[in-house]
Amino acid sequence: MSTQSTEYANSILPKDSLFDLRLQEIWRYRDLLMLFVRRDFVAKYKQTVLGPLWFLIQPMFQTAVLAIVFGGMAKLSTDGVPPILFYLAGVTAWNYFANCLKTTSTTFTANATLFGKVYFPRAVTPLSIIISNLIQFGIGLFLFLFIYAYYALTGYDLKPTSALLLLPLLIVLMGFMGLGLGMLVSAMTVKYRDLQYLVDFGVQLLMYATPVILPLSAVPDKYKPIMLANPMSGIIETFKYGFFGTGTLSWELLAYSTLFTLLAFLIGLVVFNKTEKNFMDTV
């Protein structure tokens, strides 16, 4: 019996090549990807009265609380932008990243029963989560634009800049950073659940190290390095710069975020693909 059976089209082996990202396979399952997105979206608001409106209520309240606590009581700087608008911009963008990270990081544990019964490229699941969240983000962005327009029409001096053209890039970066980190975490939580808890509150804490509440310009020099080291800072700051014309547009920071995202995504995908093979034995 020969051990090399090249005459066969497919093989199941103990180990796959580490860098075989199997992107064509994911492409072949694109219908499943879209059906998952649909399922997540439809299932979320079935049997609710307000339906997709819930996607708006959450950031609205979050913004209101931030505006009252940090803008109203603590009187933190918002670079001269109306607090409501300033916080809503931060919250909308941040929530997209945070939701992507949090939901993808439970991929393996949350889908263990499904994954245990049938094979499909597992990466389809986190990808579908990113797209579902993108829809949610789209609705949030719509709300933001609506309020933005309201402020602009009532005479506030908002100066949108050409950095707004970077918006698609920012969205892609946030999505893929969340996806990459989430896949990495989900692969590791298969065996060691500790990470799950870390992510849950870590994401919450990380928000304070991102210019969601404080603009980068208002951060004391002592703490600036922490914020600059956070790859999300460049993205959020650019997002705000694009809409308000305040804050900073730093290409270095943006390049750092891009590099980090690329690395996180690649490592995440490789580790994820390596894990999917045998995770059923340990999950």
Partner: peptide, 13 residues
């Protein structure tokens, strides 16, 4: 393909 083998191989068309 729900789980991988420890050793050996399967070839198929």
């Amino acid at each position: 393909k729900v789980t991988g083998p420890t050793n050996g191989r399967i070839d198929y068309d």
